[in-house]
Design a protein around this nucleic acid. Sequence first.
DNA 1: TATGAATGAGTCTTCATTCAT
DNA 2: AATGAATGAAGACTCATTCAT
Lengths: 230, 230, 230, 230
Amino acid sequence: METPPDTTPGSPSGAAPSGQPLRKGAKSQKELVEIAIDCFARYGYQGSSVDRIAKAAGVTKGALYYHFKDKEALLAATVADRVAAFEHRVQQAVSGASCPQALRRIASVCIDHAQLGDHPRFAITLMVESIETNAEVSIQLREMMRRFRAFIRNLISTGQDRGEIRPDADATAAAAAYNSVILGAEIQYYQDPDRFAFKPAIETFLDQLLVDLTRGMPTTDATSGGELKE
Amino acid sequence: METPPDTTPGSPSGAAPSGQPLRKGAKSQKELVEIAIDCFARYGYQGSSVDRIAKAAGVTKGALYYHFKDKEALLAATVADRVAAFEHRVQQAVSGASCPQALRRIASVCIDHAQLGDHPRFAITLMVESIETNAEVSIQLREMMRRFRAFIRNLISTGQDRGEIRPDADATAAAAAYNSVILGAEIQYYQDPDRFAFKPAIETFLDQLLVDLTRGMPTTDATSGGELKE
Amino acid sequence: METPPDTTPGSPSGAAPSGQPLRKGAKSQKELVEIAIDCFARYGYQGSSVDRIAKAAGVTKGALYYHFKDKEALLAATVADRVAAFEHRVQQAVSGASCPQALRRIASVCIDHAQLGDHPRFAITLMVESIETNAEVSIQLREMMRRFRAFIRNLISTGQDRGEIRPDADATAAAAAYNSVILGAEIQYYQDPDRFAFKPAIETFLDQLLVDLTRGMPTTDATSGGELKE
Amino acid sequence: METPPDTTPGSPSGAAPSGQPLRKGAKSQKELVEIAIDCFARYGYQGSSVDRIAKAAGVTKGALYYHFKDKEALLAATVADRVAAFEHRVQQAVSGASCPQALRRIASVCIDHAQLGDHPRFAITLMVESIETNAEVSIQLREMMRRFRAFIRNLISTGQDRGEIRPDADATAAAAAYNSVILGAEIQYYQDPDRFAFKPAIETFLDQLLVDLTRGMPTTDATSGGELKE
DNA sequence: TATGAATGAGTCTTCATTCAT
DNA sequence: AATGAATGAAGACTCATTCAT
């Protein structure tokens, strides 16, 4: 069970911070969080020693402790960051879309998110790891999932109100299924990126879901999954 | 990140073994594996110290090391056990069923498995944790998932050959979606057993999937998900 | 600091025990001692776990504990065995020889002993290791060395009485030097068997010693080191 | 096989370091090495637990691991230190001396070294222990011994070139004998400091050796071992 | 006579955390 | 704002020893 050393990344989020060039190893709090996210996503909380994170960031442990009370505080910061980013992204994706369109766009966002390696895997890894070992994080991530499911459910309900979705559909169950496919597909993709048919799995599901939800409704473009093409 | 102490379970497999009483707290190798599975499933590999497992089993660390070369060997034994059990269970479920029936039955088996707490969560927890930290286990679990997807794909292909499934369906993508819902639903269930609509999520998916796969085919009973009732 | 596994030796002392063929792994106390000597000689006391010795002997630890109260008792048995064997060998070598001859023969015995791998290294290894860690063994080996030095000293004194050795020689110092070369040469030989000139070192010393001790005495054959040829 | 606890020594190198007082029990890397040498010399590698060394140094195990990657790295540091110190001492001893003088001086250095308890026994203890258990250290010490033998051999060869030593002497064998006596005498001295005639043993050998090597050569003062008096 | 199973103390090592500077 | 040095608790693993059979 050894884990390979982390290749010290530069600023992971692309462009260097504008303005004053920070001195040797100096990192802003935000950057430390980004790097911690990378570690936690890859190795989990227990698998990421403070020293490993510090080394990946090119600073000493002391620097981390200067910015964060303890390891859990660092974790909390990363979780908060990821949750906010995810919800922001989802909000962006749906603005002004019909329900079917929104469902396709959100899925698309999740796929991109997972494949572009922003900080993929983070939520899933921590979700699984923290269920029995870190109540606070577990609750935060559970709440995030609840909000996400509620969001999807609302999307569908609103679609029903708008006449885009058949009124007798079970919005809660549909949302649960929707979430499940995305989550399950992501895990399989992380586990086996070369052989798991990531996008087809989600597209297949979406096609079926939308056929089902819009059965007997006036046709819209979005029903026939046009937007998921890369 | 404290984890509660494990309440020492009695012989987990039900009745005490009649006959020869071993030494104080003596446990057979098989029993040790069962208990280790419990721990790994709950706390992950890194979260399960050898001492914790030993205490849960009511033996000392030395006893564990007598039976297993090291912690990884114990892990390997648990993984092998779970993989075999899962595949056996799936085999059982499908014997003599039509494709649609088989897909419903396998889902049913997974749901029961997850809810009855046999040793739920084990595969998912280890799958996520081991991706970057334990190549051997990661490979074993990846192979298991590949086999499972191939199995589902074959089920569908066979269904196509038999005329149960529409011939132009994409068996690979359908299998990937099928796997995804189950996996994703399980995680959400473990994370939020009280609020996640486990069975409805999977049923909703299955109904849609089977409607899609059997479109234009002669109707069978299994299409209308009768068997998923508990 | 890993040590290679011991290749399970058969009966190391050559011929199988006459009479009843012992059953699987059964070993006489004598045989266990021989094997323990091998281990202790190679890896030292601390480096030879009871399990390692047992495995080398093809028995279980329990069997060792049946024959010997504890690990130290086994050690004591090996030390006693080696000390007795060494002193016996030396006694044999000198019987009926003149002092110079005896000194050559004893050296010869030591060289053969070291090179033929009877149980070489044992005394040295244990001597060095036990100085601070095992008073009993240390004393036993110290006594052995004292006896050996006294023996050599007596040999020389007797030689002086007999007129073989010049009377003003310092028998004690000569004995000390004699012992030193043998001991020091053995260590260097064990450490570097391919490159250390084992026999020449001792021969050179012996030649000089005997020239010195017999200075002004009537010449004997033994003075001119004939017997050390292999 | 119990070993007495080490009496925590103060700063072993004499006066306390003036100036900056470090943390409670803080020791410089150099000091840790000195203390480790003491322990290894006395109890060997296996007999010196990291905890024992740490306690002897008045620090915690963690402090040791802060400075040295693992126990073997600490060992390596001690070996390197000792080898360098020994070779330096020998170099010093011979500068500008004739061959016979040099041989006497080096012996003198070894005797002082052993008796003044600088860090005696270290090389011998580790040499014997590491032969089968630590290839790296074994090689380092073997190389040191080879260099030392070569050094003595060169000394003699040079003496031959200069006309101090008889040209038909076997320099290699003489060097081997020289080394052997010193090594063997040291061991016996460590084993039995009260009763082993340390200096006489070596002097006796040296006298004989120099008589032999300078046979037929113009006399020098050094031949008649004046300098070995304490 | 010997084994298989187990114990508990001890060993090497890691890690979260602290703190003087 | 950050570092270097250190701590102490915990973790993986070993080992001498015991004992029922």
